[in-house]
Design a protein around this nucleic acid. Structure first.
Length: 463
RNA sequence: GGGAGUUUAGCUCAGUCGGUAGAGCAGUUGACUGUUAAUCAAUUUGUCGGGGGUUCAAGUCCCUCACCUCCCGCCA
């Protein structure tokens, strides 16, 4: 007999009433009286459980009466309408095979645990309501992103994980090497001789796929990369991880407005997809994690994102009643407190901030006509802060070269990136969307470590 | 890199003025013919994060190390 998923039972329950079915899964909770009992079983296919009713006619009733939470069962039975008001149907078991008992030191209990504690048992936490919902939604968001780009004619490009260039000077990188740190080869000058390393040069884990994907943008037009990214900064915050995933689209013959349109469409698409395909999970988040979640998401889906320039943002901040720890000043980067004030208090919705001073942005961003600002945009959202960073790229060879030199970068490292500006250059743009920050925003979960299956942060690579 | 806080039972946490450690839940045992965080009764559990110091006496005060958490910076 074929196993029926609990998802199928919940979705098509009425059609299955009175039929014999086979299910399997893990005990979430059980309640037993003298001659009968109830088991709530979760099989991983659906957020909700199914209630199993068993009685003393089963030959292993005594064992089942004290079944421990977490045990795995294989159940034959009949699906019937339930007299209880908490569920429309239940299964009257005709046979229950105990596939694996759960030993008494199983750490998950029939009560709420703190997220901090659950992080220490990351191998078991996906069995909880919250984490099963988070990781199912994480998967759905990833799928929605691919679906969105695919339907929009974008080509998915796998950019390299191991790179030899410091892509944007984006901070500390993890070194990739097969050299023995105990006996490093040295040059005559006493420096480490990377020509003896595996790739014959110094290599690192990628901090961004953007420079690589731009090359494909000049060939396949609209492209995106979506993969793991690594940053070795010692960031102890709720929104930073050492290993995270990033979505980076790139569009040829497009400007910053096209870029923002794309970002806005993508965010809205993801929300619509989740509301349609994960209603149980979203309702759960709304009830237990963030009571404003559904309102926030539906508002975002239905509203136009605000677009303001950096200069306007500074003006807003300067005339604000609020006392900031750091005084807003044109030419300095916006502090987190500034960003939060703008997106949470002034607009109460996502906002794009555009046209930042050139000195606080990366070398590849396109110089504006004022010669002071670049065509950059950050998308700020309430609760999470910066979720997207993007720009129109500098397509003019001379200006790009000058920026590389002015910022003290090695132009030899970027020869192939500069080539793009020599061989049929075009106005193009793109952005990086923090995948985990998106999951946080869509679920209301406040810590990035709780939306990554096995999070990596400084001093933590357990599991 | 800078700053703050936390660490007590399996989990969540209380512990007053320094006087030798407690609650709820979980677990275990029993009762119960429709429960749903089931209920009721009984009951077990501690190197108070590690090390050092002050004191007649330290979970409590001081020093130090570690871990975790949070804020800032860096960014996504």
């Amino acid at each position: 007999m074929k196993t029926t998923s609990i998802k199928k039972i919940w979705r098509e329950g009425k059609d299955l009433i009175d039929s014999d079915i086979l299910i399997s899964g893990w005990v979430r909770t059980s309640r037993t009286s003298k001659t009968f009992g109830f088991i709530e079983l979760n099989d991983g296919t659906f957020f909700k459980n199914i209630q199993i009713v068993f009685d003393e006619n089963l030959n292993n009733f005594n064992e089942l009466a004290k079944i421990s939470i977490g045990s795995s069962l294989i159940i034959n039975g009949k699906l019937v309408e339930s007299p209880g008001d908490k569920q429309p149907f239940e299964i009257h078991a005709t046979n229950i095979e105990i596939a694996g008992l759960c030993e008494p030191d199983f750490p998950l209990q029939k009560k709420r645990h703190g997220n901090e504690y659950l992080r220490t048992i990351a191998h078991l936490r996906p069995r909880t309501n919250l984490f099963s919902a988070v990781f199912r939604v994480r998967s759905l968001i990833a799928y929605a992103i691919h679906k969105f780009f695919n339907e929009s004619g974008f080509v998915y490009v796998h950019t390299p994980i191991i790179t030899s260039s410091d892509a944007e000077g984006a901070g500390e990188m993890f070194r990739v090497s097969t050299l023995d740190p105990e006996k490093l080869p040295r040059t005559d000058k006493g420096e480490v001789d990377y020509s003896k390393d595996f790739f014959g040069k110094s290599t690192n884990l990628t901090v961004s796929g953007q420079l690589a994907v731009e090359n494909f943008c000049a060939a396949l037009r609209n492209v995106y990369t979506f993969g793991p990214t690594f940053r070795a900064e010692k960031s102890y915050t709720q929104t930073h991880a050492s290993e995270f995933w990033m979505v980076e689209p790139e569009m040829a013959f497009s400007d910053l407005n096209d870029d923002m349109d794309l970002a806005e469409d993508l965010m809205k698409y993801i929300i619509s997809y989740l509301l349609e395909n994960a209603p149980e999970e979203m309702a759960f988040f709304n009830q237990w994690v963030d009571k404003t979640l559904m309102d926030r998401l539906t508002n975002l889906r239905d509203s136009k994102f605000e677009r303001i320039t950096y200069t306007e943002a500074i003006e807003h901040l300067e005339k604000a009643d609020k006392k900031f720890e750091f005084k807003p000043e044109w030419g300095k980067d916006l502090q987190t407190e500034h960003e939060r004030y703008l997106t949470e208090e002034v607009y109460s919705k996502p906002i794009f901030v555009t046209d930042y001073p050139k000195d606080i942005k990366a070398f590849y961003m396109r110089m504006n006509d004022d010669n002071k600002t670049v065509a950059a945009m950050d998308l700020l959202v309430p609760g999470v802060g910066e979720i997207i960073g993007g720009s129109q790229r500098e397509e003019r060879y001379d200006l790009l070269l000058k920026r590389i030199e002015d910022m003290g970068l090695e132009k030899e490292e970027y020869w192939w990136y500069l080539d793009l500006r020599r061989f049929g250059t075009n106005k193009h743009c793109g952005f990086g969307l923090g995948f985990e920050r998106t999951v946080m925003y869509m679920t209301g979960v406040e810590n990035i470590r709780d939306v990554i299956p096995f999070p990596r942060t400084p001093k933590n690579a357990e599991f």
